[in-house]
């Protein structure tokens, strides 16, 4: 075990994956000499050379499109998208090629491509630097989508993503890059919990609170605050957004009867809708209240001085918990 920051943990995971497999190579904008705008790839080009850590021209579609060709040739490319809002030029290559080639070719062509996406807000940036575009990709068959919330998962799951023969989008919460935590670097891949698994990160009995990425920490803080008022929240870190590991969610909701989901992404058509619908289908008779979503609004990501209103925080999450519990809340007295 060693203590390291979130960003250092991703760096260590990338380094381990590159050490283990000479076919792993990194591509992206400014990832070489600079080490990436967030320094996630710091030192890797120096140690592995410019052929394995490629500074690419500024063309996201080409980063993904050439990664497809490299995968045909037997490589395992790890593509960095500099910021969440820059992924859209690559959207066609991701959803029409990366996601579908295995199916299109009846399994003959594999696409072991990892796409790293720093995502989410809370860093005071201008437009296009704080988005949460994960639902576009969870809606696309053929992709696996994961999001990490702590340094250990950041380390383990980047290695699992790279080792996976399917394409994986790896959403890293940029506002947590400086969070420190214990990381065990001595685990083999087969000793780690599956990257497809959701995990209970704080046990509780009254309400199930589902979060992922940057909001897991906020959810845990909310659970601690609620405990002071005698409310016991079970926090589940979803970890895998596609597919969703529903078993722990179902087990939890069967005990608590109440479900709150939180994410930074807009509400309509988001992960919260999918989870609410699926849990309602699977656990209808156990539910004591309608599932509650506490999410970003259906607005373009706002200017940084407004983002605190857009992003779910501890208080808004607790307000959602109050709604699930039928306690006085922001909507008390309103119809519906």
């Amino acid at each position: 075990m060693s203590t390291m920051t979130f960003s250092r943990a991703i760096n260590a995971g990338l380094r381990k994956a590159m050490d283990d497999d000479p076919k792993v190579l990194l591509m992206g904008e400014d990832i070489g000499k600079l080490g990436g705008v967030f320094r996630i790839t710091d030192g890797l080009q120096k140690d592995f050379g410019p052929q394995r850590v490629l500074d690419t021209p500024l063309a996201e579609s080409a980063i993904l499109g050439t990664a497809v060709g490299l995968a045909y040739r037997g490589y395992r490319p790890v593509c960095e998208i500099q910021f969440d809002g820059f992924i859209y030029p690559a959207f066609d290559q991701i959803v029409a090629q990366v996601a579908k080639l295995h199916y299109r070719t009846q399994g003959k062509v594999r696409m072991p491509i990892t796409i790293r996406v720093p995502f989410g807000g809370g860093i005071g940036s201008p437009e296009h630097h704080s988005e949460s575009p994960e639902a576009y990709f969870t809606h696309t068959s053929g992709l696996r989508v994961i999001s990490v919330s702590n340094p250990q998962d950041a380390y383990s799951m980047i290695r699992q993503a790279i080792a996976c023969d399917d394409p994986v989008l790896y959403f890293e919460p940029k506002r947590r890059y400086h969070t420190k935590g214990e990381v065990n670097e001595n685990q083999d891949l087969d000793q780690m919990p599956s990257m497809e698994s959701a995990q209970v990160v704080a046990p509780g009995t009254d309400v199930t609170l589902v979060a992922y990425g940057p909001l897991v920490q906020t959810a845990r803080e909310a659970a601690m605050a609620a405990a002071d008022e005698g409310i016991s929240i079970e926090v589940i870190d979803l970890r895998s957004l596609a597919p969703i590991d529903f078993a722990p969610l179902e087990a939890s909701v069967r005990r608590t009867g109440r479900l709150v989901i939180t994410h930074e992404a807009a509400q309509s058509g988001g992960l919260g809708a999918e989870i609410a619908a699926s849990i309602t289908e699977r656990c209808f008779s156990y539910l004591e209240a309608a599932p509650v979503r506490v999410t970003g609004f259906d607005v373009p990501y706002p200017a940084s001085k407004l983002e605190k209103h857009h992003l779910p925080d501890l208080d808004r999450i607790l307000d959602g918990v109050d709604r699930a519990l039928g306690r006085p809340n922001s909507l008390s007295g309103l119809e519906g």
Binding site: L64, G69, G74, D92
Partner: peptide, 23 residues
């Protein structure tokens, strides 16, 4: 590779494959 229907997408795949050949 089998036929590509998205117009022009395959030019990037060939370029990436050639990068692999070079490596």
């Amino acid at each position: 590779a089998t036929p590509q229907i998205i117009i022009g997408a395959q030019t990037l795949h060939a370029t990436g494959y050639a990068l692999g050949i070079q490596n």
